[in-house]
Computed example of a mutant assay.
Amino acid sequence: MKRAVPVLSVLALSGALLLTGCQSNSQRCVNGKCHVTVTGDGQTLSVKEVDVAVTRITDEGMTVSVDGSAPARIGRGESARVASVMIKVTSIDGRTVKFDLE
């Protein structure tokens, strides 16, 4: 029984690291235009004082909503107005999507 507790602790910690290690995001804004990189879907981030929720990333595009708007699918290389902002998907590589937000 003494070994069960440390083993369970290690397994729980490993699972938590796997869940948190799959998602990341970064952004850089210059002159009102923001370049955003998101790795892993199911994230909400604040960009230019709006909440951007990236709910799905596929090879073809991403599904996104802004400030609780209806979800919009934007394909690679495409632009769309979502709520109050314009979003252009610039690249997709696996689970990572890069987009510009104005």
Rank of each mutant, 00 (worst) to 15 (best):
A80I: 06
E78R: 02
G15K: 00
D51Q: 13
D67I: 09
G40P: 06
G21A: 10
V97G: 03
A4T: 14
L8W: 05
M62W: 05
G75F: 00
L11Q: 07
E60V: 02
T37C: 10
G40L: 03
R76V: 15
D67N: 15
T90M: 08
V97R: 00
D59Q: 11
I87G: 07
L8D: 11
V66G: 04
D67E: 12
S91V: 09
G61C: 02
G15H: 06
S91N: 10
Q27N: 04
K33T: 15
L101Y: 04
N25G: 12
V52K: 06
S14Y: 10
D51P: 06
A4S: 13
M86S: 11
R28L: 07
L45Q: 07
L45S: 04
L19G: 10
I92Y: 04
V7F: 13
R3Q: 13
A12Y: 07
V7D: 11
A83T: 04
T20N: 10
V10D: 13
L19S: 12
G15Y: 04
V52Y: 08
A70V: 10
L18G: 14
R56W: 06
R3V: 15
V10E: 12
D67K: 02
V38F: 01
P6A: 13
L19A: 14
K33C: 02
G42Q: 04
D67G: 09
M1W: 03
T39P: 01
A83H: 08
L101D: 04
V97F: 00
R81N: 12
V36F: 03
R76A: 11
S9E: 08
E49P: 01
R28Q: 06
A53F: 08
Q43F: 00
R56C: 07
E102T: 10
D100E: 11
I74H: 03
V36E: 05
D93R: 03
S9T: 11
K2W: 07
C34E: 11
V38I: 12
S91E: 12
C34Q: 11
T58S: 12
D41E: 14
K33H: 05
C29N: 08
V38N: 02
N25S: 13
I57S: 01
T90L: 08
A70F: 09
G21M: 05
D51I: 08
T90Y: 06
T96R: 06
T37S: 15
I57E: 06
V30I: 12
I87N: 04
G42K: 01
R95F: 07
S91C: 05
S24T: 10
E102Y: 01
V38D: 03
I74G: 09
E102A: 05
Q27S: 13
N31W: 02
T58Y: 01
M86T: 14
V66W: 01
V36T: 11
C29Q: 09
I92R: 01
L13W: 09
D67H: 04
S69K: 03
I57Q: 02
V38R: 01
